[in-house]
Amino acid sequence: MIDPGLYNYWIVVFLMMAGFYVVISQGNLVKKLVGLSLFQTSVFIFYISMGKISGGEAPILVEGITVYSNPLPHVLILTAIVVGVATISVGLALVVRIHEAYGTIEEDEIHEQDLIDDETTEDPSSFSNGEKNG
């Protein structure tokens, strides 16, 4: 078997950075959540690949096998996946609410609406003055 060396970490870093890029560069909130899941999956792969021992078997007791892969990362990631779907769905619920309140799920447009709201609620007179001057 060819020793893959450090490739597993580089794949993880690539996936992680892809997710990171989506989160910080995209304005769409659903896409941000997908990016976040991508990031999350890269961490899962990181843990699982650390638990792997070359020549090891799945950690279920079978006669005649002595080398097993590490079960501890499996446990952590197993629960993390299910917790992940629960938290992602909370995020989706928030996005749905934001869509109902603002009519959009683009970050820029939400921000603009917020700015307009702030100006109108904080000081209505200055806002109208500004319009007159303009």
Partner: peptide, 8 residues
């Protein structure tokens, strides 16, 4: 699966 993590 390939990394022996069947449960995961």
């Amino acid at each position: 699966m390939d990394l022996d993590a069947v449960d995961v």
